[in-house]
Design a protein around this nucleic acid. Structure first.
Lengths: 220, 220
DNA sequence: GTATAAAGTTAGAACAATCTAACAAATAGA
DNA sequence: TCTATTTGTTAGATTGTTCTAACTTTATAC
């Protein structure tokens, strides 16, 4: 049995894993706002439970089982977010906190029913992929807006940061998923972009913002 | 802040309170399947938090604040059960376990939205009243079927036991809320009732079952 | 290539929620 | 009313999750 606390560690490890699947203790400690010694001892415990590969002074890695369990928690989180938006009328900036609690509900039937009522969605309201029943998750080929060049036209496909503040920032600028964005220019000094989209002919987006917007190129 | 564990004690106290609002430590201990010394120490803690009136060797009583908090937890439980049945297509015997977990979700908005989508229901799928936003709950004037007499015709309004087994037992006999039931006879020895309802002309219901069925008299 | 800083670990304590064993008070039977 | 049973409490231990303080290892900077 995996406790609520352990579930939160697994999810954090999953979310922080880089391409090679590695996470540092310090990173995890800061993310969870839990002191390093506590994290170390929990990692030893999760290692005993075969959910994490742990060796002293080495980066942490989830085991296959750990990845699956974490994926299933994230599946519950994202299905919930989708349900809240699509079936209950919540806005995308108000679903994270609720999903954060619902992801710990143990009831396969409940989440299967959500999935069914939603028509088996592949992405959540922020464009993040919903892991399948085996906890497997695949990101489509997205680019950060900040990596695109002047003159390109792209489609907004996902947002990395799902904090209410950031999402409200996007709301205020009438930005939402699916939006077609044209890059008019890029300021060389601070990488601020001037873009046009919808009725906006000239909006300025800081590098910090552009790094958090994932887009698809050349999808018409 | 009230912990999940404390919430479960409050809810149990609320559910076990008799007319005078009293609950014994032993009773609570058996209900929660937690040993008496643990219950005693938790009661002292809840007394410190002004949620329970506690005096050594005296019966336990919720304070006004305790009653309110407990009522709000039960509100969340029952709204969830109603939502699961009305909006998600679950059957009444499958909602208790899920609601048991959802009742601990902290998000007034979430439950307000449920309430609104459901059209502000007064009762849950088992006929139990849903406490209002202040945690206040009122039972309508129901009688146990077991207290009714031969010849009476009554309407099934609520079920006391919400275990899946009992609800499946009722399903198997095509019994549901709103059903009009006529008492054909009562066996004096064991109080078994012979009743008719719907297409059934002669069904036998044990006293154990009749005690768990709440009915309204003379409502046409 | 050593000194310093950053990252990670060990040891020991604290708090919440649980238990068992032993004792005390209240209740019930004769 | 006296004793036996039931109910309730106290004391002390256990487990899970967290902390601080002190120490060790690894990485960084000159």
């Amino acid at each position: 049995m995996i406790s609520l606390t352990e579930e939160n560690y697994l999810k954090a490890l999953f979310n922080l894993s880089n391409k090679s699947g590695e996470v540092n203790v310090n990173e995890l400690s800061k993310w969870l706002q839990i002191k390093m010694p506590t994290v170390t001892s929990m990692m030893k415990k999760l290692a005993r439970k075969k959910l994490v590969h742990y060796e002293s002074y080495k980066p942490l890695r989830l085991t296959e089982r750990g990845k699956k369990e974490a994926g299933l928690i994230i599946r519950k989180h994202r299905l919930t977010e989708m349900f809240l938006v699509e079936k209950m009328g919540f806005r995308w900036e108000n679903v994270h906190e609720i999903a954060e609690q619902m992801e710990h509900v143990h009831s396969p039937d409940f989440f299967e029913k959500m999935d069914e009522l939603l028509g088996f969605p592949k992405i959540d309201p922020h464009g993040s992929p919903i892991p399948d029943r085996n906890g497997k998750m695949v990101w489509r080929e997205y680019n950060k807006l900040s990596d695109c060049k002047m003159g390109e036209t792209v489609r907004l496909s996902a947002v990395i940061n799902t904090s209410a503040e950031f999402l409200k920032f996007l709301n205020n600028r009438e930005m939402r998923l699916g939006l077609k964005i044209k890059i008019k220019s890029v300021e060389p000094f601070d990488k601020t972009m001037i873009v046009s989209y919808g009725k906006k002919t000239s909006e300025s987006l800081s590098h910090t913002v552009c790094e958090r917007l994932l887009v698809e190129k050349g999808s018409g």
